[in-house]
Computed example of a mutant assay.
Amino acid sequence: MKIWIDADACPRVIKEMVFRASERLQVPVCLVANKDLSRAHSRLITSILVADGFDIADDYIAEHAAPEDLVITADIPLAARIVANGGVALDPRGELYTEENVGERLSIRDLMQELRSAGLVLGGPAQFGLTDRKRFASSLDRTLTRMVKLKR
Rank of each mutant, 00 (worst) to 15 (best):
W4F: 15
I5E: 00
D6K: 00
A9Q: 08
C10T: 12
C10G: 00
P11V: 09
P11W: 09
V13A: 12
V13Y: 05
I14P: 05
K15H: 05
K15S: 06
R20A: 13
E23L: 09
R24E: 15
L25R: 15
L25N: 11
Q26V: 08
Q26P: 02
Q26E: 13
V29L: 00
C30P: 00
L31M: 10
L31C: 07
V32C: 01
V32P: 00
D36V: 10
L37A: 03
S38H: 14
S38Y: 14
S42R: 08
I45L: 01
L49W: 06
V50W: 05
A51C: 06
D52G: 07
D52W: 03
F54A: 14
F54L: 13
I56P: 03
I56Y: 12
I56F: 15
D58E: 14
D58S: 12
D59S: 15
Y60M: 02
A62P: 05
A62Q: 04
E63V: 02
H64V: 02
H64K: 15
P67G: 07
P67D: 10
E68Y: 06
D69W: 06
L70V: 06
T73A: 00
T73S: 07
T73F: 00
A74Q: 15
D75E: 03
I76K: 02
P77L: 04
A80N: 13
R81V: 12
A84E: 15
N85P: 04
N85I: 01
G87D: 04
G87S: 05
V88G: 01
L90D: 01
D91L: 01
P92V: 02
G94F: 12
E95W: 05
E95T: 12
L96A: 13
Y97P: 00
Y97G: 04
T98P: 04
T98H: 07
T98D: 05
N101W: 06
V102G: 04
V102S: 03
G103K: 09
G103H: 08
E104V: 13
R105V: 01
L106R: 11
I108T: 10
R109Q: 11
M112T: 13
L115W: 11
A118G: 10
G119W: 09
G119H: 10
V121D: 05
V121W: 08
L122H: 13
G123L: 02
G123M: 01
G124A: 05
G124T: 05
F128V: 11
F128G: 11
T131F: 09
R133Y: 08
K134G: 12
K134Q: 15
R135H: 14
A137K: 10
A137C: 03
D141F: 10
D141V: 06
D141Q: 13
T143C: 15
T145E: 15
L150M: 09
